[in-house]
Design a protein around this nucleic acid. Structure first.
Length: 497
DNA sequence: CATCCTTTGAAGATA
DNA sequence: TATCTTCAAAGGATG
């Protein structure tokens, strides 16, 4: 699509925004009970949602649970929580922008758009977990001017060499302060079912099934039913109820009563579009967008959404639980109102069929990243890297940080390709094999190399690649990968850590 | 005017 | 089963 190609192609700087490290927990590696992150780990979220989910299941709702945060990972809470090994969310240097002061200065960055500096002092999005994160370069105006401060093609990281001492020092614990980690969730989080009444609920109380007694305040908001206009949200809402899910829409009847295909197709066109229920994050965005917009000078939603993504990760567990609960109710209500509806219905509408996966043009976005390396959409980190990357040359453990470098890890501006950060030793770092570099379209995990991160009894860090281990002495600590593409021309690949 | 961008999560489709 | 894809919201930007 012209849009994407022109933007991505010309800029060439498909530097994925700083992404996150996905660490695969090593089952057998039952470290101590060091729960390292204050962030919402996957299992934490799982426990967070367990209550509401089980409730949902208990309601005979047969829909399979695909939620990555629901009941998926819940069994190894006491081994290490490898979700966010290092909190990407705290910046001890206090730089308002979340960038190191030096970098911010270098880049001529203001403390950023938000006067209260909140967005960038709050956590980066899940995929932007590594260091001095920034808003996505594209959103930041690599191809679009002005609105977003980062200069095109500039990688807002401190210059790195492959020298791990530098790398390690970059990721000093002071930057990713363990002390600032969120405390782990309690095993059972009380879900507050009495949600704030000013939350932008989308259901009218009158439309709520009686079983949802607690949903009496679920109201107001947006109709899930929209017309077929190009701007479905505008003017297509049920103005009488202002509900997203007006009950008077009987999709079953509307389709079954049609006697022939033409009528059906016509009916389909007239049939109001039933939107998907909003997920937790969407609900959060809906509530917080105005606030962020008011606080910031930004207007573009893409940038706002990046900020909201960070705030989302910065949310406390209770806060997130609130939105998960809301989302669960939305789904429940949606299912009750439109038992025959499925997301497939909307998917087949064709209208937004557009976003066909672009070719491997180095497009830079998380969806590609996830798609390519199978990152699911939970809080798993993925990172941009060079397609030529694949050789781990060293691992270091300096002052609590574990670092891994790659021999090929130097890009055109001399930045070390693989910057470390992985807190809590253990787990697996997955890197693309060097062989994958020649295959521009490698798409499966078969082309990956697993790097084991381990700790020894004396506190050393060990990275093991293809049976070859590299040990670094020192304390335990944090490390993670930050892979940067080899050159602006090289299509980035993404690494699942 | 249609689509992109950008985020996370949900869910269906596909391999 | 794992992975991939699309769509939810939002509104300025872009072709």
């Amino acid at each position: 699509m012209p849009h994407t190609h022109t933007r991505h192609g010309s800029s060439g700087d498909d530097l994925c925004s700083t992404d996150e490290v996905k660490i695969f927990k090593d089952e057998g590696d039952r470290e101590d009970d060091k729960i390292s992150s204050e962030n919402l780990l996957v299992e934490e979220k799982s426990s967070l949602i367990d209550l509401t989910e089980s409730e949902e299941k208990g309601q005979k709702i047969a829909r399979p649970d695909h939620s990555p945060v629901f009941n998926k990972i819940d069994t190894h809470t006491h081994s290490f929580n490898m979700g966010y090994l290092v909190s990407p969310y705290s910046y001890a240097n206090g730089t308002p922008s979340g960038l190191p002061v030096t970098m911010a200065n270098k880049m001529g960055l203001p403390p950023f758009f938000c006067h209260n500096a909140d967005p960038l002092t709050t956590p980066p999005p899940a995929h932007c977990g590594i260091p001095p994160y920034q808003l996505d370069p594209k959103t930041m105006g690599l191809t679009r001017p002005a609105l977003y401060p980062f200069a095109g093609g500039q990688y807002p990281y401190p210059m790195l060499s492959s020298d791990m001492s530098q790398v390690a020092s970059w990721h000093t614990p002071s930057v990713y302060s363990a002390s600032s980690f969120r405390t782990p969730y309690p095993s059972s989080l009380p879900i507050n079912t009495t949600l704030s009444s000013d939350f932008p609920f989308r259901f009218s109380p009158s439309l709520l099934p009686s079983v949802h007694a607690t949903s009496h305040h679920v109201l107001n908001a947006h109709s899930a039913i929209v017309g077929v206009s190009s701007k479905p949200d505008c003017g297509a809402q049920d103005t009488t109820t202002n509900n997203r899910y007006p009950r008077n829409l009987d999709t079953k009847n509307s389709s079954s009563t049609q006697s022939n295909d033409s009528k059906e197709s016509l009916n389909d066109k007239k049939k109001p579009h039933i939107k998907k229920p909003l997920n937790a994050f969407m609900l959060y965005m809906k509530e917080m967008r105005a606030k962020v917009v008011a606080e910031c000078t930004l207007k573009e939603s893409a940038a706002i959404n990046q900020i909201l993504g960070r705030r989302w990760h910065a949310l406390g567990r209770e806060e997130q639980a609130k939105y998960y609960e809301l989302a669960r109710r939305e789904r429940q209500l949606h299912m009750q109102m439109y038992p025959d509806w499925s997301s497939r219905t909307n998917a087949s509408r064709g209208k937004k069929r557009k976003r066909k996966q672009e070719t491997n043009d180095g497009g830079n976005n998380m969806k590609k990243c996830r798609a390519r390396f199978g990152l699911d959409q939970q809080n798993q980190w993925c990172k941009p890297c060079s397609p030529n990357l694949g050789v781990i040359s060293s691992v270091s453990n300096n002052g609590g940080s574990v670092g891994i470098t790659s021999s090929t890890a130097v890009n055109s501006i001399g930045v070390g390709m693989l910057a470390p950060i992985v807190s809590g030793i253990g787990g697996t770092v997955m890197l693309p094999n060097s062989s994958s570099s020649s295959s521009s379209s490698s798409s499966t995990s078969s082309s990956h190399t697993h790097v084991q991160l381990m700790s020894t009894s004396n506190g050393n860090a060990v990275a093991s690649l293809n049976g070859i281990s590299v040990t670094a002495g020192g304390g335990g600590g944090a490390a993670s990968g930050c892979l940067q593409q080899l050159s602006p021309q090289a299509p980035p690949t993404y690494v699942n850590l």
